[in-house]
């Protein structure tokens, strides 16, 4: 244990440069040299990464490595945190999302987010899903809204379970159902990218399997960025994997390559379970 910590701290700055191919053809989101600071403390250290269309990209790494912070930069959820500062470029379809003139409201409609803990609104199931379309004015009639709600719940694989009790509170569902409700709520706004911050960490294995199956289906229409602590989940779900370590993006690559043949020693140590 002692020797391992020593080993890690001896890794110099040169060894922390990202290994692997960070760019993709025709990316949805293009991040260039992104730094994030919480006050004086640097949480993310110059990350450059592309997020492609219709792919699931998994972000793995030990706790506190900055993967969630990076995820939250992609739809500016960090704005609400006092003292959080982001530098570098993050472009969504060529548009700088940190541009001062850019409005975060439409950005978040384009880049939805699902959180670690299911957090449905304390309202009915219907209202949970209908809220987004309603505030964005996506539908003009009640029947259109009904349709959006039904479609979103179907896509989230929840429709059959809740269609008879749409007026019951969303907080009364089980944990896995709540998380799928949150996904339905995100889908209802019609985003292009869905960010998922450890979406299954509060769920039991059966609910996890359902959500994973759902994520796999959603890939057809959306770009999905998923942060996870479970390497099996990353291996099952994602096409590409990014490994973060203490604020650095260490290695990016095709998932099967990362898990079978990692090129960086830190990545190898992590996925073989020597730390993390």
């Amino acid at each position: 244990m002692q020797t391992l910590i020593k080993q890690q701290s001896t890794i110099g700055a040169a060894d922390r440069r990202t290994v692997g191919r960070v760019t993709v053809e025709n990316p949805r989101i293009r991040c260039r040299n992104v730094h994030v600071y919480y006050g004086e403390k640097r949480a993310i250290n110059g990350v450059t990464l592309d997020i492609g269309r219709n792919e699931v990209i998994a972000m793995i790494g030990p706790s506190g490595c900055g993967k969630s912070t990076f995820l939250r930069c992609l739809n500016r959820m960090n704005d609400a945190i006092d003292g959080c500062r982001v530098t570098g470029d993050i472009l969504l379809d060529g548009q700088d999302i940190y541009d001062k003139r850019l409005d975060v409201v439409p950005l978040r409609a384009q880049v939805g987010i699902v959180f670690q803990k299911p957090n449905p609104f304390p309202k009915s199931i219907y209202e949970n899903v209908a809220y987004g379309p309603r505030i964005h004015g996506l539908t003009s009639t009640r029947s259109e809204l009904d349709e959006v709600v039904e479609l979103s719940l179907q896509k989230a694989g929840l429709w059959d379970e809740v269609k008879d009790r749409l007026n019951q509170p969303g907080t009364g569902l089980s944990g896995g159902q709540q998380q799928r409700l949150c996904i339905a709520r995100t889908i209802a706004v019609g985003p292009e990218v869905i960010l998922m911050d450890e979406p299954c960490s509060a769920l039991d294995p059966i609910a996890t399997a359902r959500v994973e199956a759902l994520i796999d289906e959603l890939r057809e229409h959306y770009s999905i960025v998923i942060v996870t602590h479970s390497m099996q989940q990353a291996a099952r779900l994602s096409q590409r994997t990014a490994y973060f370590h203490l604020g650095d993006l260490i290695e990016v690559g095709m998932t099967n390559q990362i898990f079978t043949n990692p090129r960086h020693r830190l990545t190898e140590d992590y996925i073989t379970g020597r730390f993390g």
Binding site: V105, R108, N119, I135, C182, A188
Partner: peptide
């Protein structure tokens, strides 16, 4: 705060 995040996350002002 999760309620606030949920609302902000789907683009509520």
């Amino acid at each position: 705060p999760s309620i606030r995040e949920a609302a902000l996350g789907i683009g509520a002002s």
